[in-house]
């Protein structure tokens, strides 16, 4: 018998953990690839996507069935990714100080083109351009163009008004357009 998503969540809310596997299987790939786009590391993306599923399960009793699980889950995942990126930046600042406290630049091996399926020049440039965007600009491009979500869904996930979705998307695409000028 095939259960609807709401029925599965209802079962999970009653403590029937085995049903959660169906939700995980449904969203695991989009969660992993979204996290990969956000943090640019396959290992971190795997850890973050799984951590988001664990946190979602632990809070599932508080989930209201009239909302979409995907939006709620992606909010958890987005927050985890942003928090991870902040920690990573702080770590990089601390770990690159020499004995006198001066900063030593270290090569960043995240957002490597080897993570791409197709390594055409245009894709490499886009991947580099995405990595250079601010976290909030990258997240909105990933949600819209990679996950194919509507502005309404994005506004629910990021908890921002529709107008802000449009203006943030405009800022992100304007910056990407400049960085991709050679390919336009």
């Amino acid at each position: 018998m095939t259960l609807t998503e709401q029925e599965i969540i209802s079962k999970c809310q009653q403590g029937e953990t085995k049903y959660y596997e169906q939700l995980v299987n449904k969203y695991k790939k989009s969660a992993y690839f979204y996290a990969l786009g956000m943090v640019g590391s396959a290992e971190d993306a795997l850890d973050l996507s799984q951590e988001a599923f664990i946190r979602a399960y632990r809070s599932i009793k508080r989930f209201k069935l009239q909302y979409q699980f995907k939006n709620w889950f992606f909010r958890i995942l987005t927050n985890l990714c942003i928090s991870h990126l902040r920690k990573r930046r702080r770590r990089a600042e601390v770990s690159t100080e020499d004995s006198k406290g001066a900063t030593i630049p270290i090569p960043d091996d995240h957002f490597n083109p080897h993570l791409l399926l197709e390594r055409k020049e245009i894709m490499r440039q886009l991947w580099k351009a995405l990595s250079e965007l601010g976290d909030k600009q990258r997240e909105i491009i990933l949600l819209r163009d990679f996950q194919g979500l509507s502005y309404k869904q994005i506004s629910e996930i990021l908890e921002i008004p529709l107008g802000t979705v449009m203006s943030r998307l405009h800022q992100a695409r304007s910056r990407l357009r400049v960085k991709m000028a050679d390919f336009m």
Partner: peptide, 21 residues
Amino acid sequence: DYRRLKEVTTEMRFKEPPQDI
């Protein structure tokens, strides 16, 4: 330009991790 950019961003794909993952 934005349409072209959108075409490129929607075409970008990442490598799949190994099946055992």
